[in-house]
């Protein structure tokens, strides 16, 4: 049995700091027929606090705690680009008390990082939460207004034109390389370790184009410092600045390039708990607070069955394979 009760301790703690206004934390049981969950559930985020999937998971846990009557506790287990925490969950007992929240980078573990973890066989896909398309963002004063104009601009410039992305082999890198291949445009790649660095260089005009999700650049777009030329597909959140898709701009084949977030269980989850958790997550995606948190971060809530999620994972795997073939990217093990 588990001796600690996170919700309880947090209420004690809140009382201590006298934050009494958070009355909404009281668990409300909806009376599920089966006895799951009968004790606190851990939601593992394999990254540090502050990343968008951490914020999403915390909000989701808040809603699930309320709907299912048991505390859902977020545990950050960062390390190795999400691999450490993911591996720990994949090996956990599949009893419905330990889940994992991951973005689509889970698919890249094998082909990009060279570590052994297949999301379809080593984990149990439960539900996709949300998606966010990639955005092609340029400084507002760049004299181009369409993808086509951008390509001409870059090809005719005497000096180098730079494209930025965050993370080697990550989704944004894949988008940038795919864009280069599909259009043949003359661009030099600059790799960043954090979105903030890339955004700074873009606003300052050192970069000419950045592939990014919309969340980080929304403020600068609203302030007229940056502009979106195109999205990879049209499923962008309401409130995001409108722009055409790549396909509409004549660049076909980038629809699938997007970020998604989803919930997994350990390997070999029983079907009934998988279905119950899937239903609970789909229901949580109707919660106004959950929707606000997602859409304000530029993500679109996506409902679906575990089978839908499996399909999304397979689609992503194809995109990663294509990237690997395209660039000859190899997981490199140094010393």
């Amino acid at each position: 049995m588990m001796k600690f009760d996170h919700k309880m301790s947090r209420r004690v703690f809140l009382a201590a700091t006298a934050l009494a206004s958070a009355a909404t934390l009281l668990p409300v049981s909806l009376g599920h027929a089966a006895d799951w969950p009968s004790r606190p559930v851990t939601m593992v985020v394999p990254f540090g606090p502050g990343a968008s999937n951490d914020i999403f998971t915390r909000q989701l846990s808040e809603v699930l705690s309320r709907d299912l009557g048991q505390p859902f506790v977020v545990e950050n287990k960062p390390g190795a680009g999400g691999f450490t925490g993911s591996l720990a969950v994949s090996q956990a007992t599949p009893d419905g008390y330990r889940f994992l929240e991951l973005p689509n980078s889970v698919v890249a573990f094998g082909p990009i990082m060279g570590v052994q973890l297949d999301p379809l066989t080593d984990l149990t896909p439960i539900a996709i939460l949300a998606t966010s398309p990639g955005a092609m963002v340029v400084p507002a004063d760049l004299p181009v207004n369409s993808v086509k104009e951008f390509i001409e601009y870059a090809n005719n410039r005497s000096e180098d034109t730079f494209v930025g992305y965050v993370g080697v082999g990550a989704t944004q890198h894949q988008m940038a390389e795919k864009f280069k291949t599909l259009t043949g445009v003359k661009l030099k790649s600059i790799n960043y370790q954090s979105a903030a660095e890339g955004q700074t260089d873009l606003v300052a005009g050192r970069l000419q184009v950045l592939f990014s999700t919309i969340a980080g650049v929304l403020g600068q777009i609203q302030a007229g410092k940056l502009k979106v030329l195109a999205y990879t597909n049209d499923s962008y959140a309401p409130g995001s600045p409108p722009a055409p898709t790549m396909a509409e701009q004549g660049v076909e084949g980038m629809e699938g390039s997007q970020v998604w977030w989803g919930v997994f269980g350990p390997k070999g989850m029983p079907q009934d708990i998988t279905d119950q958790m899937n239903a609970a997550i789909n229901k949580a995606l109707d919660d106004p607070a959950m929707v606000t948190v997602l859409t304000n971060a530029g993500a679109v809530p996506v409902k679906g069955s575990p089978a839908d999620f499996v399909k999304a994972i397979k689609d992503e795997a194809e995109i990663v394979q294509e990237f690997v073939k395209l660039t000859g990217f190899q997981p490199k093990q140094g010393g």
């Binding site: 049995m1 001796k3 600690f4 004690v12 703690f13």
Partner: peptide
Amino acid sequence: YALGLPYPVI
């Protein structure tokens, strides 16, 4: 108990 860290006591 005060900070509510998610470690099992036992």
